[in-house]
Design a protein around this nucleic acid. Structure first.
Lengths: 341, 341
DNA sequence: ATAATTCCTGCAATCGTTTGCAAAGAAAGT
DNA sequence: ACTTTCTTTGCAAACGATTGCAGGAATTAT
């Protein structure tokens, strides 16, 4: 078992009788190095199978070409699509992306922020947990003047760059649509209101009701993490009581799907007796029977925007903490049979 | 705008009148350092808001605590679940995971391997592209004796540790089930056979046919990347011809869903006239009408296995390239109405 | 009081790059 | 022949941590 040496520029310098500075410059295509030397270096690199050590370079340059990303979970369609877009865009510009999941735990999120900082990422892109209300663990990035961009799950009162879908419009248009279809008893299933996007949506919902001279019915409001299990519990409560609602505004598609299935199981016809809408327009909405009305958020575009903003911030070496950019990306209500008579 | 200094252990040493070595040891809880000194260091860290520089430490230690992962795309349910499992497991043991996507492009994959190596990851976990046949770009990891683990899309003839679902059984059991349900003209839609797992599945399929004294019908075999668009094209071809098949073995759920929808659009009844099976058991299979029979691969368990193996390899500092571990994880055929009369 | 231990702490080298500055040699201008 | 300019290279100091070795102080043994 031969001890495998990791060759360094020092070895290249030695074999060629050059100094390491010359080799370094040759590798970086520095103009002061002659073509012939560059060629010799290239050959030696090939021969010795030399590999650049990014750690050493990053340390010296205080620049890692690495962008960190913290998402609650990558298994969600919206999230993985945004991340893919970000990765593609950043890759174009020579940056690498380091993806981590907070698992919707503020404690893990906090830890990951530390890890990212320790790795000296050049920028950080975040979609926070559902429960993050104190954003002070992000302070280090602001203090060190390292670009920090939030998307989707953005903070409310924290100074940072933000990209979010138009959740107010999402809530408004969806509700308005349900009202126009004749619904008057709308059950509202939302994620935790500690999360700004759910608050925004709720405001849109309220505004639409107001236009119909209505107010939210507290007894029809359900607030919990939007997974299948919770959705089923809510359905149970919802369909057990005497007065059935005539519509359900579900905070995501997983919930909407569960509602539709539960309704079918109970013999409640959708959309005749119950109208249902989801959110995110994931691939399940169009294959279920009936297909579910949902809000398209254009995740790929959100990702491109986030990456573009990050790249701009990386470019301008000035102090970014001055005027924070806050972008609202458009959404589109995709109306399907689950809500249309 | 105050110039923000990044504090180092040097600064801590200076404020406390200690040497940097003492500070370093205190931070690492070295036994030779007195409790009182450790306490003072801890306070200074707090006060100066010192942050560990993982780059510098990694360079010195030649150990980054970072594991690289290259997946074809994280938007696939199976992939994102495996990755999540891996991340959770590694995190338990103090490792971080750096996730990148090859986008099913061998060229990008090759580039990413270089990037991972340059970042001096302590290990690399890979699910290769559909088209990777030459795996020599992974040689550097083997030569440098850095743990390399493949999952799902594993190489055929390349020496490495591998974890894969039991695709042979998946192919066999699914086919056998279709035959037992009376199907005799089975269309077989598979991903590129350059990918080992599709070959394994195909062998299982052949074996099942053999047991029924049948041989594959070349005219019913379709081989292409398994996305929605391709599936629709194949359906067109499949349903246009005179003699309809009585079953479709689809290589993934996206394809199976497309087949079912296409059949419905053509007025072909599933499962009466056409039986359909998918692969991966993603959430769409159980909500479509009729629900689709599919193969559960237990992605979370696959991820745990991959991470566990990686951790073991990291532990033993010996030469791992000797006996390569090759694990086959169990699958389970989940039978639903799409294939059962 | 001297020697042997134990407990802490510091010196200085090291990891693999990058880069400001200096300088050597060649070419060109006067 | 002498200065000036240009091209190409090397020296050495960083970047921020870790660690083997040495040594000073305090404690205990002889």
């Amino acid at each position: 078992m031969k001890k495998q040496v990791q060759h360094t520029i020092k070895d290249i310098a030695a074999t060629l009788g050059l100094s390491i500075s010359t080799v370094s410059r040759a590798l970086n295509d520095h103009p002061h190095i002659s073509q012939s030397t560059k060629q010799r270096v290239r050959e030696a690199v090939e021969k010795l199978d030399y590999r650049h050590n990014a750690l050493a370079a990053s340390l010296r340059n205080s620049r890692s070409n690495m962008i960190g990303l913290i998402a609650p979970r990558i298994t969600m369609y919206f999230q993985s699509t945004v991340i893919t877009a970000i990765q593609h865009k950043l890759h174009e510009y020579g940056y690498n992306l380091m993806v981590c999941q907070s698992n919707d735990s503020p404690a893990i999120e906090k830890e990951l922020v530390g890890v990212m900082y320790a790795s000296r990422v050049d920028g950080l892109i975040v979609s926070s947990t559902l429960y993050t209300e104190d954003f002070s663990h992000f302070d280090i990035f602001n203090r060190a003047n390292i670009p920090l961009v939030f998307y989707d799950r953005v903070p409310h009162n924290y100074p940072a760059h933000k990209i979010q879908g138009d959740d107010y419009q999402g809530g408004y248009q969806t509700t308005r649509h349900l009202l126009e279809q004749g619904a008057r008893k709308i059950a509202y299933i939302t994620g935790p209101l500690s999360c700004k996007l759910y608050r925004d949506r709720y405001e849109g919902y309220q505004e639409a009701l107001r236009e119909f001279d209505m107010t939210p019915d507290e007894s029809l409001m359900f607030c919990h993490e939007l997974n299948k299990k919770n959705a089923q519990l809510t359905c149970k409560a919802l369909f057990a009581e005497g007065g059935l609602p005539d519509a359900v505004f579900a905070g995501n598609d997983t919930t909407a799907v569960a509602v539709v299935q539960c309704a079918k199981a109970k013999g409640i016809s959708v959309p005749q007796q119950l109208k249902v809408t989801g959110y995110s327009n994931d691939s399940r909405t169009e294959i279920i029977e009936p297909p579910i009305t949902s809000v398209e958020q254009f995740p790929y575009e959100v990702g491109v925007q986030a990456a573009t903003l990050m790249l701009e911030l990386l470019e301008q070496k000035t102090n970014h903490s001055q005027n924070h950019i806050s972008l609202i990306t458009p959404i589109e209500l995709v109306i399907r049979r689950s809500s249309r008579l």
